[in-house]
Design a binder for these strands. Structure first.
Lengths: 212, 212
DNA sequence: GAGGATCCATGCGTGGATCCTG
DNA sequence: CAGGATCCACGCATGGATCCTC
């Protein structure tokens, strides 16, 4: 948290410069660049491993791109939706729950009109879900999981879920993975991920007084 | 086979040249180059996939580096040794057996004193194991598999097996993978592969009159 | 001579996310 | 606006094998 607070107010160009890294011209071909820069700046030790970013303290770091009103302008990827194995037994044991149990949010300016190097980091927030947030997440997770168990995966759209949604997550739409159909047969489908809706992350920031 | 016979007598430099590929100075940093060149030259369609090289006809292609006497100077990699899952039920259903059921052998000159571009391809051989070969393979496979089932994986050395042996197969010796120990507990061990001894592949070539 | 160690290519999955139309 | 599509990095596994010391 000390290191995270030290980043607050700094702009991406300055941070990258101190680390000897070049800033890409835009994010369209480097969508994960900001997240990877800040993970490295904070000394995350599990980059690209299926582990919390900061292993010893069980903390996930996530950037939160904010628009001019301080509202997250994108959803937040949580984890892949497990489609093959028998489904996860409970919310508490789910991959999504574990990912979201302790998150270090790093707000980052994301107005398109601000050049990437000049975008600033906001006040960091080490967050765990409160009771209401946990209930909302769990309810969405259970409803979506029930559909998957019923073999209704193909009918799930991003419109479902109040705070947690399921959307495609792949290099492109031709990618397929194995899953289980309604009759228990093997089927090919699109890889999907769980995402937090912007309204949900916005509410988190508001609850902690970090944005209007 | 028509295409394979057309390669016989040609040297690697000519084949690479026709394909517009550069010949590396030596193989030490390009150990698989000859195999990949010839797969491409023959139109294999499953490069780097866990499938037979020629999917439609179920054929594996393998180069066989020969010394000045026409004896294979290296062992032949077959497949990875499955260490995690429950072991394979039978030789007939094993990965190794399926890999070896139809192999297109391409002998290649491998004397170090011949520059890589000048090394020639020999007569191709489309081979399936005869009864004796099958029995020898199966016996080794069953003995090695029994040791793995007994949790004696760490005691297996490359000295075991008359025709089929188990040796390390990894980027380097620090690589570890998950396996099952003697008491059924999860352990970390080195990834290993099945290999055919040179004496075995030598006998195949001799049986078909391709080498002295 | 051969057992143990190593090297490159490529597909796939996870982890980091944002892009881009209707 | 946001659902569906897409982009890069990297670890790991498989597939192609040969290297390099005892």
């Amino acid at each position: 948290m000390h290191r995270a607070h030290a980043l607050a107010g700094q702009c991406l160009g300055a941070i990258a410069g101190e680390m000897g890294l070049a800033v890409p011209h835009n994010l369209s071909r480097h969508k994960g660049w900001v997240g990877q820069l800040l993970e490295q700046a904070l000394g995350a030790d599990a980059e690209s491993l299926p582990e919390p970013d900061f292993r010893a303290i069980g903390v996930e770091m996530k950037t939160l791109p904010l628009d001019h009103n301080g509202k997250p302008c994108e959803s937040t990827y949580v984890c892949a939706v497990p489609l093959d194995a028998g489904l996860e037994p409970s919310w508490e044991e789910s991959w999504a729950c574990r990912k979201l149990s302790r998150v270090l949010w790093l707000p980052v300016e994301a107005q398109p009109e601000i050049p990437l190097p000049e975008r600033r980091i906001g006040t960091p927030l080490l967050w765990s879900p409160n009771d209401g947030e946990r209930e909302a997440l769990q309810q969405d997770w259970e409803e979506l999981g029930e559909m998957i168990r019923m073999g209704e995966l193909e009918f799930i759209t991003a419109r479902m879920g109040n705070v947690l949604q399921i959307r495609p997550k792949a290099a492109h739409s031709r990618v397929r993975c194995h899953s289980i159909g309604a009759d228990g047969e093997a089927i090919l489908t699109h890889p999907r991920g769980y995402y937090l809706r912007p309204a949900f992350t916005h509410a988190i920031l508001r609850r902690h007084g970090l944005v209007p």
